[in-house]
Amino acid sequence: MTRLLALLLAGTMLAGCNAGTRLAEIGRGPQLTEIENPTQSPNWRPVSMPMPAPREPIANANSLWRPGSRAFFRDQRAAQVGDILTVLVSIRDEAQLANSSTRSRDNSESLGLPAMLGLESSINRILPNSVSASNLVSGNSTSGSTGAGQIQRTETVTLRVAATVTQVLPNGNLVLGGRQEVRVNNELRDLGITGVIRPQDIQSDNTVRHDRLAEARIAYIGRGMISDVQQPRYGQQLLDIILPF
């Protein structure tokens, strides 16, 4: 009971905090967040990835080419912390699954003791007279189950978002992060993306496809009146979690 009351109290406090924010936005709609340095966020953590062993550079006399270099001429693609590049997000996910199963089982067991060194005649001294030694135990069971399920899902997301290089790993890979907010009337759309890319995957126009991102995290969420009415109340969500039936 104490734990249940604590959960209800926590849900009420959370709803109260959200209610305060919503009351402050009456007549104005959701407000855009300020531009911040992503590395100054309390939730930001530097990325640590497995790195290859370092190699000593080899100098060649009378040569403009440096061993290990990925390009002969320098270009304007993102390569350092603070550089900006565009991430092309094009997700088209379609899945269809159908499953059907049928199970049945029929069991029958019978146990008797017609003869056992003459001791079968002594059974009625222990058990009631209605018990027969030839049919001591008899049982049967029948069970069956039928199940069917089907899943069909189609998702399409096409976006372009500018991201900033926040870290250069020792092997040259780039850690990037970007966030974009778009407000239309009283509805706010928030797009966030983070990941790790190889410099050679950046195209000549300083863009990179989302499927080139390792450890990609792409979030596209909404805040506002429409998004608010599309989700259950906090109390209903809490009851859905704790109620066992």
Rank of each mutant, 00 (worst) to 15 (best):
R223Q: 14
A133S: 08
R153G: 05
S204G: 04
P244I: 03
G139T: 10
S145L: 03
R153W: 06
T158H: 13
A59H: 14
L213F: 07
Q180Y: 02
G147T: 14
M49N: 03
F245S: 14
A15W: 12
E187T: 08
E181G: 09
A115F: 11
Q203T: 09
Q80L: 07
D205V: 01
Q76G: 10
G172W: 07
G149Q: 14
D211R: 04
R22I: 10
G195Y: 00
M13F: 10
F245W: 12
R125Q: 09
L119G: 06
A148Y: 02
G192S: 15
V157A: 11
E109G: 07
G222L: 10
Q167G: 00
L169N: 04
G149I: 06
N18Q: 15
S204A: 13
N37L: 06
L88K: 09
D205G: 02
N186V: 11
G144L: 04
Y220G: 00
F72G: 00
D205K: 01
G11T: 15
V137E: 01
G29T: 03
I242S: 02
Y234Q: 08
G178M: 01
Q180A: 05
T194E: 04
D240W: 13
T21G: 12
R70W: 08
V81M: 04
I35P: 02
I242A: 05
A59R: 14
P199R: 05
L213V: 08
I226C: 06
Q152G: 14
A98E: 08
S108D: 13
P244K: 07
T33D: 12
N186R: 14
L7Q: 05
